[in-house]
Design a protein around this nucleic acid. Structure first.
Length: 392
DNA sequence: TCTGGGGTCCTAGGACCC
DNA sequence: TCTGGGGTCCTAGGACCC
């Protein structure tokens, strides 16, 4: 059966919400992001601001230099999440198959809805009208025979755009686009492609699979090949629930203050554990992240036998990782804390009694630390027995 | 002009087990 | 004393996206 997908993207979402909430901002350059004079970047900016060269992920100080008269606003994530929920509910009145991609994007399977909403253009117009009425915001819509093509189409005529790719014309559609539009191939991949003489999507379509695989590996080669031909490499498949959660803080000034790092870790532990607790799920893998003043970054992780049961447990492991991996000398720019492999069944069935699980955990740590310090000096008891038997 | 915060997925290598 | 092949779990790092 021929399927039809709509990819819907809110235009300049954070800035647009601010303008809808405060109409006096309309027509002005609006920049949502870090507070002025603080470390941080532009989250979203209005199209008026983009005319001055302002864009997402730009340093806020740079945005200020480019557009000093813009209205600078802090990020009000709770408000955007509220508007986002409202919009997703509207989407679900058009089709039950709505995959939320991010706070401002969704992929809709609109197969078989023609009798309800009309052809693609009509259905698109109705969605736009509904979102406009409900929130005052505009969306850009891409339409295609698969989610990947729809996603790319949605980005081509922002804001308030609608681009439909005819069935059977997917490869031709991709061929006309610059390589930068190929979702999933970023700066690093493009540079590597240039090394083997590929600078266009057409070039990517025609290059031999072997050459591609030897440069990028089989999985990446297949992704690039399918994407370039307008086949869905499966970008939104099995998007289930979240698999990790993390929190991080960039310090206003790089720091070597251990107390500052510890208290930040303490706060992050409380936040993350409470999110885990609220989710009702389990995690027994924790990571910390340290970004140094030169922007290099390390991550260190550990896995327990049983899921975290308190923010104290989270903090204890986080602190141990910090102490084992920071010399107290290198200035730290950012510290982060994450929990991973989140799910309901991550618990190992080691013991019914938490005390035993804890002591098993301690034993494991002792073993690991001895292994690290005295390489090869630790062997399993059963091997000792074997040696003794041989000597006899 | 320095470069946030929240995520997903993949790879490579080591330890360990059978 | 030398040594295989397959599998799982774990760790560290990195590409990419919004």
């Amino acid at each position: 059966v021929d399927r039809i997908f709509f990819h819907i993207d809110l235009d300049a979402f954070f800035a647009a919400v601010e303008m809808a909430d405060n109409p006096s901002l309309k027509g002005k350059p609006v920049i949502v992001g870090a507070a002025l004079g603080h470390r941080g970047v532009v989250s979203t900016c209005s199209y008026e601001a983009r005319k001055y060269g302002v864009h997402s992920a730009q340093a806020i100080s740079e945005a200020r230099r480019l557009c000093p008269h813009a209205v600078f606003l802090p990020v009000r994530m709770n408000r955007y999440a509220e508007v986002s929920r409202k919009i997703m509910i509207e989407f679900r009145t058009f089709t039950p198959d709505v995959t939320q991609i991010s706070i401002d994007e969704a992929s809709l399977d609109m197969t078989g809805t023609e009798k309800l909403w009309g052809n693609c253009n009509d259905a698109g117009a109705k969605i736009k009208q509904r979102i406009q009425e409900a929130t005052g915001l505009t969306v850009s819509i891409g339409i295609g025979s698969n989610r990947y093509v729809a996603k790319i189409a949605s980005g081509l005529k922002k804001p308030d755009g609608l681009v439909a790719v005819a069935r059977g014309r997917e490869a031709e559609f991709l061929r006309t686009l610059p390589l930068e539009k190929l979702w999933g191939a970023g700066d690093v991949t493009r540079k590597a492609l240039k090394d083997i003489g590929v600078t266009t999507i057409e070039g990517l379509q025609l290059i031999s699979h072997n050459v591609l695989a030897s440069k990028f590996g089989i999985a990446n080669a297949r992704f690039l090949h399918e994407a370039s031909w307008g086949k869905d490499p499966g970008i939104y498949e099995d998007r289930c629930k979240f698999k990790s959660m993390q929190g991080e803080r960039t310090f206003e000034y790089d720091t070597i203050d251990a107390e500052n790092l510890e208290s930040t870790l303490r706060r992050l532990s409380d936040e993350i554990f409470s999110r885990l607790y609220d989710s009702g799920e389990d995690s027994r893998t924790l990571s910390i992240k340290i970004r140094f003043s030169d922007f290099t970054c390390i991550t260190r992780q550990c896995t327990r036998l049983a899921s975290y049961r308190s923010s104290d447990q989270v903090f204890e492991d986080a602190l141990r990782l910090l102490k084992g991996n920071w010399d107290g000398q290198r200035p730290v720019r950012l510290i982060g804390l994450g929990l991973h492999d989140i799910g309901l069944h991550t618990e190992l069935q080691i013991s019914l009694f938490p005390e035993e699980a804890d002591s098993a955990e301690k034993a494991r740590r002792v073993v690991e630390s001895i292994k690290k310090q005295g390489k090869g000096k630790l062997i399993r008891a059963r091997f000792l027995e074997q040696k003794n038997e041989k000597r006899r």
